[in-house]
Design a protein around this nucleic acid. Structure first.
Lengths: 237, 237
DNA sequence: ATTTTGCAACTGATGCATCACATAGAGAAA
DNA sequence: TTTCTCTATGTGATGCATCAGTTGCAAAAT
């Protein structure tokens, strides 16, 4: 029997479609609010509609697309409500993760955190800084010993990255958050959960205000409930 | 083919299957750790395997079933890790929701909360008390003005209810938490977010300790990572 | 006569069913 | 114990029915 060494043998096709679509949506290569065509996606990736359907179910569970029954799949538009919800959810999860990390973190994990913090010293663009920040906060989440917190943090960071890509061109120079992060790791290392939670809360509050202000100055957010990338906004092509 | 006047005609079949399976899993009518047979489920509900697959994808996204590729669907076993994660997640979300509720709650919403608290006065079994508590905390979550918090709280309550059904026979007499709830509503009404968050945190901590102790005394949880309803435990038939 | 409104038919896509295949896991045999 | 086979089950492909959105025509009102 001929068994070829297929690297994708253990990965279902639906997984491939899911990851591909997820990446496209995350990077805003698909304009928020666009209605997707399952058949064309299937033909593009040279698969049938079935794995596309599975991928859509998963994307809908992630909140990245909304399924309109018998009508179509629509990538989630960026609304003021969504921005508020994501940042507010981070404000709930982040401090709690920091607090738990102060309880459970091992010396090895603390060392990892310090190593990530040191990476902030090097100059970098905001894109890689976002990646470093992601790794930093996810490392803290892992210290919380709660898999759900880790998973939720991952999706929140993904969606936050999507917001940033949509709203901000990556030429903005990176701010200096290294001090905040050092203080946070110190609090975790000292086992001071309340201080760690407070620092994380303030950190998220700062980034929240930064992002909101940035969005408003760019004109993407006006008074209250302006919908971004929805039907009221045509693709800027 | 005879097409009868189906009242659920406008609801997708996969939705029906999803809700049915979800309810069965929640009520522990399906023993945790059981491997599901998609074909038999399809024949039971007189549908094909396709909507069953969609339902499985959604249930997997909810964390209620784990998909073993090319092998089977397994309803999530109840592990110590799962219990910890759910209760810890509640400890993260609940106080935050209470804090935000103190900021945003309208007089009408506070009146609703007080009405729900009054329902605690009547004697009730632990099952209906759980339902009242669910409505109470979800009402607070809705005051937070964060749809994600509401959705997450719903799933957490669902899974918590599943744990309770699994571990506790419902003859346990209801505790008296009415005073705690009254104090919580008062704090929200007064706009004291920190006090509301502290009360909610303590409340969740109490219920967490109660549930953990209950599980351990019943022998479901031993030292640390005993898996409930998994492969190590055969269905009690 | 023109415009507007309402209905009906058409088109296109989604969702479900059926079929085909590959794989994992169990069981038997060596 | 190891390996091979067989069965059962998930996974992907395809065809078809159903439904939503649209367009065009007709009729009525101005």
């Amino acid at each position: 029997m001929i068994v070829e060494a297929d690297p994708t043998a253990h990965a279902p096709v639906s997984e491939r479609i899911y990851l591909a679509l997820r990446q496209e949506i995350m990077r805003c290569e698909i304009v928020p609010g666009t209605t997707l065509d399952a058949a064309s996606i299937a033909s593009t990736y040279e698969v049938s509609k079935t794995p596309v359907r599975d991928a859509m179910q998963r994307l809908a569970a992630d909140g990245l697309v909304t399924i309109l029954p018998r009508s179509g799949y629509r990538v989630a538009p960026i609304t003021f409500q969504a921005v508020h919800d994501i940042l507010d959810m981070r404000a709930a999860i982040g401090p709690h993760a920091a607090r738990q990390a102060a309880r459970y973190a091992t010396p090895a994990e603390i060392a990892l955190l310090r190593q990530i913090v040191r990476e902030y010293a090097a100059p970098m663009d905001i894109g890689t800084m976002q990646q470093v920040a992601r790794r930093f906060h996810l490392a803290i989440a892992r210290c919380s010993r709660n898999k759900r917190v880790v998973a939720l943090s991952e999706t929140l960071f993904d969606e936050l990255e999507r917001l940033l890509r949509f709203a901000i061109d990556f030429t903005v120079k990176a701010g200096e958050h290294s001090d905040e992060h050092t203080a946070l790791v110190d609090a975790i290392a000292a086992g001071d959960g309340e201080r760690a939670a407070a620092i994380e809360f303030a950190h998220i509050k700062h980034s929240r205000e930064f992002l909101i202000e940035r969005l408003m100055t760019l004109g993407y957010l006006s008074a209250s409930e302006i919908q971004l990338g929805g039907t009221t906004r045509s693709p800027a092509e």
